[in-house]
Write a protein that binds this DNA or RNA. Structure first.
Lengths: 98, 98
DNA sequence: CGATTATGCAAGTATCCACTTGCCTGTCAA
DNA sequence: TTGACAGGCAAGTGGATACTTGCATAATCG
């Protein structure tokens, strides 16, 4: 399993997650179009494909084949409690705990 | 301000945060010793210093000078809600919200 | 003051990583 | 079956980055 932090370190990959957070089951071409039109990313199809491979290896994206289309979805599991390692209980400000 | 995700992408820097999460106000030499003895990191003092600079630039480490010693502490602000961008409200599991 | 300690700065190297290019495989429609 | 579509694989390139080496600066101690 790849490194979740390393996967999140790239801006293009974060934008891919943004798009997948908006809508699941998107193909490579759909993601390419959205990244170009909405975020000005001008990378090739292969570049995006490699980014998706990194995200998949990190467990942040799951894949489902449908015919010749590969449908990508976001996997939120690895994102939860990712930084909990440094936010020890008792000092958390998010849940209104004293 | 640097990139928080990029700062967290390096294992050595994550270990530094681990040590700073254990104890605040540590000097460069203290961190070097701990990284070597507890984690087998065998980087030079300058390497660790550069890592600390990256962490500081990302806002993850704050610095306080005391004489000729530079005391480093963890800054947890940028760590909170770092992944909230993809964990839209209503699907959060941490606060027991419905 | 001189010596030591704690750290910073700058340049060089070597590896990693994002990206491209070119070609190949598998699926669908006519 | 033929052509078009969706995607994968592999090699090469350029830029970023982790690390080292060598020297410089500032504070403390005798």
């Amino acid at each position: 399993m790849g490194d979740v932090f390393k996967a999140l370190a790239d801006e293009t990959r974060r934008l891919i997650l943004d798009e997948l957070a908006t809508r699941d089951d998107q193909t490579l071409f759909e993601l390419c179009s959205l990244l170009i039109s909405r975020h000005g990313v001008n990378s090739s199809r292969q570049a995006i494909s490699q980014h998706l491979a990194v995200l998949e290896s990190a467990g942040l994206v799951t894949v489902r084949w449908q015919g010749r289309s590969k449908l990508h979805s976001i996997e939120r599991g690895p994102l939860r409690d990712l930084t909990q390692r440094w936010l020890e209980p008792g000092k958390d400000t998010r849940c209104g705990s004293t």
